[in-house]
């Protein structure tokens, strides 16, 4: 068939519908986890989703790198859609911050009209949270360095810097887990525990997704899928990583230090 337009008409793909089924199952498995204390189904669904996501990414990589369907216009549109996605994510976090400020600026009578609420022992912001902040800022520095080396056509150094970034992302998730395990309050301890764990754990999930995206760019960079004018995956992962970084700065500022 003759084709004389820059747009890409996608072929049938099974992944969107399978992904939606699995997300529904994931939600149900969270209920099972909370009420029946059975984490097995939840872990199973998480593994399922990671597998489906990987296969979906595989198809997109085949369409872009190996079939050459991502023309200049498509690249432009992908960038715009990523900007839209990041803005929607921003407003997702703004809703959590709104809850936080609503409850903290004028604390209600139920929490003794004080913030943090009575009997809540909060984290010391100069300990693990400060280490987390340093880790994320340093990882942002390394990802910028990786991009700089990439644009200067120095692939081996770029790969090394990207590896440092991924390791720092994993390190962040690890110390965040240690912090959760050592916390003096839990998610059902007043509004403070609820909003604290909701926000920081959603941020943690975003860090994990960002690490996953960076890992995929790492593998693709290692396999030489990127060229100087076509490295959308790497670029959009960097945008996402910086977005996660900025969200953490606000979390650190408002949830840990300024209360």
């Amino acid at each position: 068939m003759k084709k004389n337009f820059p747009f890409f008409l996608v072929k049938n793909s099974p992944w969107p519908i399978i992904m939606s089924f699995n997300l529904m199952n994931l939600l149900i498995s969270i209920i099972l986890w909370i009420y029946l204390k059975n984490i097995f189904l939840f872990m199973f669904m998480i593994i399922n989703i990671i597998m489906i996501k990987s296969l979906w990414f595989r198809d997109i990589i085949r369409e872009s790198t190996f079939q050459g369907n991502h023309t200049y216009y498509i690249k432009l549109m992908l960038k715009f859609s990523m900007i839209m996605f990041i803005i929607s994510e921003l407003f997702f976090f703004i809703s959590f911050f709104w809850t936080f400020f609503h409850s903290s600026i004028s604390p209600s009578i139920e929490i003794n009209m004080m913030w943090p609420p009575k009997m809540i022992k909060i984290f010391n912001y100069t300990e693990i949270p400060l280490l987390n902040t340093f880790t994320l800022i340093t990882s942002g520095f390394f990802i910028t360095l990786s991009h700089l080396y990439f644009l200067n056509n120095n692939l081996s150094k770029s790969i090394k810097m990207l590896l440092f970034t991924i390791l720092m992302g994993l390190y962040f998730s690890m110390i965040q887990m240690i912090e959760y395990k050592n916390s003096y309050f839990c998610i059902n301890d007043s509004i403070y525990g609820s909003i604290f764990f909701l926000s920081t754990s959603f941020h943690g999930i975003h860090v994990m997704i960002g690490t996953f995206m960076l890992m995929i760019s790492y593998i693709r960079m290692y396999n030489k899928h990127f060229s100087l004018i076509h490295h959308i995956n790497f670029e959009l992962s960097i945008w996402y990583w910086h977005f996660v970084d900025v969200i953490w700065l606000f979390l650190y500022l408002f949830y840990y230090t300024l209360i």
Binding site: P6, G68, F150, N153, N154, L228, H230
Partner: peptide, 24 residues
């Protein structure tokens, strides 16, 4: 799609025109 089993040992990025295929 088609791909090559040969792996380049270059430490630099592939040439954009060499890497691109299809409509791109």
């Amino acid at each position: 799609f088609f791909r090559n089993a040969v792996y380049s040992k270059d430490k630099t990025l592939p040439d954009p025109l060499d890497l691109a295929t299809g409509l791109e």
